[in-house]
Simulated scan of single mutants.
Amino acid sequence: MSTVNLKDAEAGLPELVDKAETGEFITITRHGKPVAALVPVEAAELARKAMAPRPVGLASYLKTFPDLEVERNPAPSRDVDL
């Protein structure tokens, strides 16, 4: 992981993007304090998914599974004489 101050990051952005593209994480500082990070797209997508709101309820949870097809039971839930 590299650390670079904001002024140097502005001047050398193309090179920093190339480094991030190869998998390197770059921390950008302002006045010596970390304020941002330049990361590979894959890492950003993983972080975004980890921060996504969790589904509420069993049905919502099951919908998150890829290629899951559930057939609904056509039978009535109760035996009712009409």
Rank of each mutant, 00 (worst) to 15 (best):
M1G: 03
M1K: 02
S2G: 02
S2C: 02
T3M: 00
T3V: 04
T3W: 00
V4S: 05
V4I: 11
N5A: 05
L6G: 01
K7G: 01
K7A: 05
K7R: 06
K7E: 02
D8A: 06
D8L: 06
D8V: 08
A9N: 05
A9C: 08
E10M: 13
E10C: 09
A11N: 12
G12E: 14
G12C: 10
G12I: 06
L13R: 05
E15F: 09
E15W: 06
E15V: 07
L16H: 10
L16W: 11
V17G: 01
V17K: 08
V17R: 04
D18A: 12
D18V: 05
D18H: 09
D18P: 02
E21T: 13
E21I: 05
E21V: 12
T22K: 01
E24D: 09
F25R: 04
I26T: 03
T27D: 00
I28P: 03
I28M: 03
T29N: 01
G32W: 12
G32P: 04
G32L: 03
K33G: 00
K33I: 07
K33W: 06
P34S: 06
P34L: 03
V35D: 08
A36R: 10
A36L: 11
A37R: 15
A37D: 08
A37H: 13
L38K: 07
V41G: 08
V41T: 12
E42H: 13
E42R: 14
A43H: 06
A43M: 10
A43C: 05
A44R: 08
A44L: 08
A44F: 10
L46K: 14
L46A: 15
A47S: 11
R48P: 03
K49Q: 14
M51A: 03
M51V: 02
M51T: 03
A52N: 03
A52Q: 05
P53N: 04
P53F: 10
R54G: 10
R54S: 13
R54I: 14
P55T: 08
P55A: 04
V56F: 12
L58Q: 11
L58K: 12
L58P: 06
A59K: 04
S60I: 10
S60L: 12
Y61H: 08
L62F: 03
L62T: 03
K63Y: 02
K63P: 00
T64E: 06
T64Y: 04
F65L: 01
P66K: 11
D67T: 09
D67S: 04
L68H: 09
E69S: 08
E71M: 13
E71K: 15
E71S: 13
R72A: 15
N73E: 15
N73G: 13
N73P: 11
P74Y: 11
A75H: 14
P76C: 11
S77A: 15
S77H: 09
S77F: 12
S77C: 09
R78K: 14
D79V: 15
D79F: 14
D79Q: 15
V80N: 12
V80I: 15
V80C: 14
V80Q: 12
V80W: 14
D81G: 10
L82V: 13
L82T: 09
